[in-house]
Simulated assay, not measured.
Amino acid sequence: MGSGSEGNGHQMRPGQPPRLSPISDVAAGYRLVFDRVDALVRGRADLAALPVPACPAWTIRHTVAHLAGVAQDIVSLNLEDKAADSWTQAQLDRLGGHSIDELLDRWGQMIDSVTSTLALAPQASACQLVFDTLTHEHDLRGALSEPGSRAGDLAFEVALGFVTTMGDRFIRHGGLPALRLITPTIGAAQLGEPPTVQGQLTLEISDFEALRAFGGRRSIGQLSALPWCGDPTDLLPAFTHLLPAFTNDGVRPPIDDLVE
């Protein structure tokens, strides 16, 4: 386990409580990710059948169909079974036969309607959309070996605000050890409430690694190898049983390492 890179004085200060982004930032972050995905895969029909390692059962086409299908379901308010296997499979069934460019066209035509609908949604659900969409952007980038932006934009701010807010709730409800998470975009966030600030678990990582670790894209071995200050053993259930439950049909951390 790592020892952390902060000096003792800074390390002793508690982090700030996580916060969800305002809906205006959520809408802007969602548009930002759509624009990046569109630029990444438009006009690349030859890559449609390429497998996506982060989503082993999916291809590039499946992943884009899911993103367009989520937009359709939001606009039509088809959200009763949100994130269930059947909900996602229905998206692939109705859209999986379209070309990548056709899927991007359909998705792009719904952006305004999606962002208008977000204004009526619970704040956490709206932020979750950006988290899910950004996660799949990087799933696609991993499949194409084209990393792109991994930090410092509004989409990361919204997504990390969501995962840290959910992490804080799950850690508290599960009675798990508190975590002080530090990334460039969120600064220091306090997840859970430690009995004392001294000796609490601390993790300082990149925005991208936080997105992937908290989003079910890192194996147990990879999670354990993060530069923890303290022993994370008792916190790992947050990553293996709690946090990933809100993403991609309850995907758990992969058995094999996902190297990106």
Rank of each mutant, 00 (worst) to 15 (best):
P195R: 11
R13F: 12
L203W: 03
P254H: 02
T59P: 08
A49L: 08
P53V: 03
D207G: 02
G96M: 09
E260Y: 14
S24I: 01
N8Y: 09
D81F: 12
T202P: 07
A65K: 01
L103K: 01
R31D: 07
T183P: 04
L118P: 05
R42N: 07
W228A: 14
D25M: 05
F170K: 01
Q128H: 13
W107E: 04
H10F: 12
P51M: 05
R106E: 09
G4C: 03
D101T: 04
D35Y: 00
L47K: 11
S116C: 07
L120T: 11
E209D: 14
D35V: 03
T247P: 02
D234R: 14
E102G: 00
G69N: 10
Q198P: 02
Q89V: 11
L236M: 14
D234E: 15
T59G: 07
P195Y: 05
A83Q: 15
Q128T: 11
L40N: 06
A84L: 15
V251K: 13
A210R: 04
W107L: 03
T59H: 09
G96V: 04
D132P: 07
M12S: 12
L118R: 01
G4Q: 02
D249M: 15
L118Q: 08
W58A: 00
M12I: 07
G221E: 06
V163K: 02
A188T: 11
T135Y: 06
Q91I: 10
G199V: 00
F170M: 11
R106A: 14
A225Q: 09
L77T: 13
A71P: 03
W87V: 06
D73A: 13
L67Q: 15
L79H: 10
L47C: 07
W87I: 03
W228K: 14
V37F: 02
I60Y: 06
T115E: 12
A213W: 04
C229G: 00
R212T: 05
F239H: 10
L154R: 15
E209P: 02
S113I: 02
D85R: 15
S21T: 06
S224Y: 08
D35F: 02
A225W: 11
T133L: 08
A90V: 07
S206V: 01
H10C: 12
A151H: 12
N8T: 11
T185G: 07
S206N: 08
S21I: 06
D132Y: 06
R31L: 03
P51D: 08
P22Q: 02
Q190R: 09
D234G: 10
G174L: 09
T185A: 05
P244W: 14
A151V: 04
T59R: 12
